[in-house]
């Protein structure tokens, strides 16, 4: 009972803080009208820079083709016309960014796991490739983005490649470490039960490495999103990053804020998705007991 009460209290406080923040954001700068308060209102609250919740909401409705520029609701036909007219409307931009994040994440994860397993299982190969991996890993990934865009163009492929490279190294290193941490007696047990080398890898090394791989997937999915957005900043035809850069060019803080909030929601949903998969695949581990129940 006590814990239930306290969780209600926590929720109340959270809502109260949210409302307070929104109120300060919405009306805080207006307090400058009172001469006595003026010195206490920080200049970063200027709506020119940070916009206002009400303005951001209006921008969202407009970017989402839900209302026209005047703020009146579109009808069905108005909405489809608006969506057709603006190829980088917020829905389209989100879909494009998500799609590129997904492919980059998928490619980076699968190749990271594959290379991690191969090098982890072969002492020879891991010694041969070690200096190359260390050297390549030392390059800040973001520094490669202009090069990638030069190579793959302004389209989606350059964003996918960026996300891929960022994700690859995170997953690769975790998988590699994971293969080193496999219980030797479990491998011996598997061999004694008749497993050949590939069977040992498939039935012992991979499942026991999965825990390590998954530890890297939550950061990897955020990195994939970062990779795609940075790619879109530097050169793109569409996507949320492109939306932000365009809004910046027009000094339109509201639109930028809309894009940032959309990214926040996307980031949260991706993290929840990964955690769901993780909880299912690692349900044999004690810490995921409740998560799977």
């Amino acid at each position: 009972m006590a814990s239930k009460q306290s969780s209600t209290t926590v929720l109340l406080w959270r809502v109260a803080i949210l409302l307070l923040l929104l109120a300060v954001w919405q009306w805080g700068y207006d307090l400058r009208a009172f001469a006595a308060l003026k010195p206490y209102v920080p200049s970063f609250l200027d709506p020119y820079f940070v916009s206002k919740p009400s303005e951001i909401w209006k921008s969202f409705l407009r970017l989402g083709c839900l209302t026209d520029r005047g703020g009146t609701l579109h009808g069905w036909s108005g909405m489809t016309a608006c969506l057709a007219e603006d190829a980088n409307n917020i829905w389209m931009a989100t879909a494009v960014t998500l799609k590129n994040t997904f492919w980059g994440f998928l490619g980076g994860t699968l190749s990271g796991i594959a290379v991690g397993l191969i090098l982890g299982r072969s002492d020879f190969l891991s010694r041969v490739f070690e200096p190359y991996i260390v050297a390549f890993n030392s390059i800040p990934r973001i520094a490669l983005v202009p090069l990638i865009i030069l190579m793959f163009g302004l389209g989606d492929i350059s964003k996918i490649v960026t996300a891929w490279i960022v994700v690859f190294f995170v997953v690769f290193f975790n998988t590699f470490e994971g293969t080193r941490a496999v219980d030797r007696d479990q491998i011996a047990a598997s061999r004694l039960l008749g497993a050949n080398s590939w069977t040992v890898t498939r039935t012992v090394v991979i499942p026991s490495t999965l825990a390590w791989v998954f530890a890297s997937l939550t950061p990897a999915v955020s990195f994939a999103l970062i990779g795609v957005i940075v790619g879109e900043f530097i050169g793109a035809e569409r996507g949320i990053g492109k939306l932000i850069v365009e809004a910046e060019a027009r000094a339109n803080a509201s639109e930028m804020m809309v894009a940032i909030f959309v990214l926040m929601v996307v980031g949260i949903l991706l993290a929840i998705g990964v955690r769901r998969i993780q909880a299912y695949l690692l349900r044999w581990q004690p810490q995921f007991d409740q998560a799977s129940a």
Binding site: A188, A189, A195, T203, P207, S208, W284
Partner: peptide
């Protein structure tokens, strides 16, 4: 056949999947 001192049961397999491991492979 070999039985280890340390616990070498595969934690990611259910009890029946552990016991059936040798037959499976």
């Amino acid at each position: 056949g070999y039985v280890f001192q340390r616990d070498t049961v595969f934690p990611w397999r259910s009890v029946e999947a552990n016991v059936g491991y040798g037959l499976e492979i």
